[in-house]
Computed example of a mutant assay.
Amino acid sequence: MKNVGEAQEAPTGAPQEELATGERSTRNRVARSILDHGPSTVTELAGRLGLTPAAVRRHLDALVADDVVAPREQRVYGARTRGRPAKVFALTDCGRDAFDQSYDKLAVDAMRWIQEQFGGDEAVVAFARARIAAQTVAYRAAVEAAAPEERTEALAKALSADGYAATARSAPLPHKGEQLCQHHCPVAHVAEQFPQLCEAETEFFAQLLGTHVQRLATIAHGDGVCTTFIPKVEHTADHKAGKTPTAASPKISRTTHNTSASTAGRNPA
């Protein structure tokens, strides 16, 4: 990641270079925490990093000035409580790019060439499904090894191992189920132009977890986090025996595509 900002003032006697290095290191920790956990408040960042709120605000001011993060109003799910929503800070496109070497233009050019040379959108869909299928073995092994009620968490850990910084949590009431949140997407800029990548991923989640799922938000669409709602599944005999209902199918069914991925790549809110 690029170094974001320098020290503002050096206390008397402090080595300037050492102070600047420490400032950059802490600033990068703040940005990394937002990458790993999604849009965050000052209080949340202070708690995670062991800093004072004042110190966090100082680093956030520098990150905002460098276009690494941007403030936004916190999205509230369900009934809105009284009072003004807390301000959260989210990574900008510039901030995301700072964390990894990007080959987005090459990927977009390749996708467009596939689209033009091999059958339009159907060719892109076929590529997207083949790409996600390549990850099937590792993800399926992780999910099938977990107890039924822990499969979303197991999938989140497998995704995190691939750089998606994923977490699982209970969905806000009155919804019954879980939310799978991916705080980072290595292909977000490509998926912005080719949402078939998001759709294929959503199909795969539905097949892997044995239930329909709904994509609520995506980084590619401009949201801070890719969020997928996974409804609560009544565990059948197969579930209790440790079997995933669709595990035997090597392909992602078109029925799943029609019912589960209808909101992939879009934010219906």
Rank of each mutant, 00 (worst) to 15 (best):
G5W: 05
A7L: 05
E9C: 09
L19T: 04
L19D: 04
L19E: 08
T21K: 09
G22P: 00
R24S: 10
R24Q: 13
R24I: 12
S25T: 10
T26C: 09
R27A: 14
R29F: 10
A31E: 01
V42H: 00
R48Y: 11
R48W: 13
T52R: 14
A55P: 01
R57T: 09
R58D: 14
R58T: 09
D61H: 07
D67N: 12
P71R: 09
Q74R: 14
V76K: 04
G78K: 06
G78L: 11
T81S: 13
G83T: 08
K87N: 05
T92C: 08
C94N: 10
C94D: 13
G95N: 01
D104N: 14
V108H: 03
A110I: 12
Q117Y: 09
G119S: 01
G120D: 08
A126V: 02
F127D: 02
R131W: 14
I132E: 02
A134D: 10
A134G: 11
A138L: 12
A141P: 01
A141G: 01
E144G: 00
A146Q: 05
E149S: 15
R151C: 11
L159G: 04
G163Y: 11
Y164Q: 11
Y164V: 06
A166W: 04
A168D: 14
A168W: 06
A171H: 01
K176M: 12
Q182P: 02
Q182G: 05
C185I: 02
P186M: 11
A191G: 01
L197H: 00
G210W: 00
R215T: 05
R215S: 15
A217L: 03
T218D: 00
A220W: 02
T228E: 12
I230N: 05
H235E: 15
T236N: 15
T236L: 13
A241L: 14
G242D: 06
S262R: 08
G265D: 08
N267L: 02
